[in-house]
Simulated scan of single mutants.
Amino acid sequence: MLEMREICERCTAPLGWDSSEARICSYECTFCAPCVDGPLNGRCPNCGGVLQPRPTRVRKTA
């Protein structure tokens, strides 16, 4: 199952499960769209992989 990290690894911006701003690489490194579109230039600084929009997940309600 995909790990849904809740903050950007660069700037610590919150990235909830339903965030359309979250971007991930194939290793599930997680960054926000402003970091990816700006200083990271679309590449993961950890592995060099391409950062893509992360799927969203709806929280289950009781």
Score class of each variant (00 low, 15 high):
1 M>F: 07
2 L>W: 08
4 M>F: 12
4 M>Y: 09
4 M>W: 05
5 R>Y: 05
5 R>A: 06
6 E>H: 07
6 E>M: 12
6 E>P: 01
6 E>Q: 14
6 E>A: 11
8 C>E: 03
12 T>P: 02
13 A>P: 02
14 P>M: 11
16 G>A: 14
20 S>D: 14
20 S>K: 13
22 A>E: 02
22 A>W: 00
22 A>Q: 01
24 I>N: 00
26 S>A: 15
27 Y>E: 13
28 E>Q: 13
28 E>L: 09
28 E>S: 10
29 C>T: 02
30 T>P: 00
32 C>Q: 02
33 A>W: 03
33 A>S: 12
37 D>W: 02
38 G>R: 07
38 G>A: 13
39 P>N: 13
40 L>D: 04
40 L>W: 01
40 L>N: 04
41 N>W: 06
43 R>I: 07
43 R>D: 06
44 C>F: 01
45 P>G: 11
45 P>E: 10
45 P>V: 08
46 N>Y: 10
47 C>T: 11
48 G>C: 11
48 G>F: 05
49 G>R: 00
50 V>W: 02
51 L>S: 05
52 Q>Y: 09
53 P>N: 10
54 R>V: 00
54 R>D: 00
55 P>T: 10
55 P>R: 12
56 T>F: 01
57 R>P: 00
59 R>E: 13
59 R>Y: 08
60 K>W: 07
60 K>I: 11
61 T>L: 14
62 A>S: 15
62 A>P: 15
